[in-house]
């Protein structure tokens, strides 16, 4: 447990010291929200949720890429793969929640007649999915440029697809859009249930895939035999 918390803490420390990154993390959802603010309130909230998802995914992508060199030596220093990826994910979840709080307050003070609990749950879904999603891209694509372009493609797809289409349900952040609709348009509880289920399934699937990729990358190689100390 101590190893996991230490990795989470160091992830947070590293990100907290990158002030430019923190500023952009806050700026991205804010810009998304501002652009859509004059249109239907639902549009601005959905844009805000997408902005948070994108910002946290990008932070996760870069944190994973930056840690690629140090992880093998941490593995030799006694860490198991799950300490490394779960610790980093934990740190990114905490960061995502910290980024979401001011935006949640923004919606509370700016807009009336919303299901605020729904907005909070949608933001939680964004953060829960975004951290493993960005980490998975960072783990699969060693170069940041390729990772960023893939992230851009997925988020653009998320933005352009009709949310009612079956293809939209395959996109990672569909859950927050569904819950956002429940919170903004006061639709039936089916939206909330579907959204929660989708968010949970996607988070678990992404986390398991991240675990698989890390387990392969940081595996003990067969050619190396540890013999007892004599």
């Amino acid at each position: 447990m101590n190893r996991l918390v230490t990795v989470a803490e160091m992830t947070l420390r590293e990100l907290a010291r990158r002030r430019g990154v923190l500023l952009l993390l806050l700026l991205m959802p804010l810009v998304f929200w501002l652009i859509r603010r004059d249109s239907h309130v639902g549009q601005s909230i959905r844009a805000l949720l997408l902005g948070i998802s994108w910002a946290v995914s990008t932070a996760a992508l870069f944190a994973t890429s930056a840690a690629r060199e140090i992880e093998p030596r941490l593995r030799l220093a006694g860490y198991r793969p799950h300490h490394l990826y779960l610790g980093r994910m934990l740190g990114l979840w905490v960061l995502g929640l910290a980024v979401s709080v001011p935006f949640f307050l923004l919606t509370v003070f700016d807009t009336t007649n919303l299901r605020y609990a729904g907005i909070a749950v949608a933001m939680l879904c964004c953060v829960a999915v975004a951290a493993p999603f960005g980490m998975l891209i960072g783990a699969l694509l060693p170069r940041e440029l390729e990772g960023t372009l893939l992230l851009l493609t997925v988020v653009a797809m998320q933005m352009l697809l009709d949310p009612a289409s079956s293809g939209a349900k395959l996109t990672p952040f569909w859950s927050s859009r569904e819950i956002g609709t429940w919170a903004v348009d006061h639709t039936d509880d089916g939206y909330l249930t579907r959204g929660l289920l989708h968010g949970l399934v996607v988070t678990v699937l992404l986390t398991v895939t991240v675990a698989g990729v890390f387990a392969v990358r940081l595996r003990r190689r067969r050619h190396l035999h540890h013999v007892p100390l004599t």
Binding site: R220, R221, H223, L224, H225, V227, L229, T230
Partner: peptide
């Protein structure tokens, strides 16, 4: 143990 060889083994005590 960070890279796998095509042949050979390493023992570490």
């Amino acid at each position: 143990g960070l890279v796998s060889p095509d042949a050979g083994e390493v023992s570490v005590s």
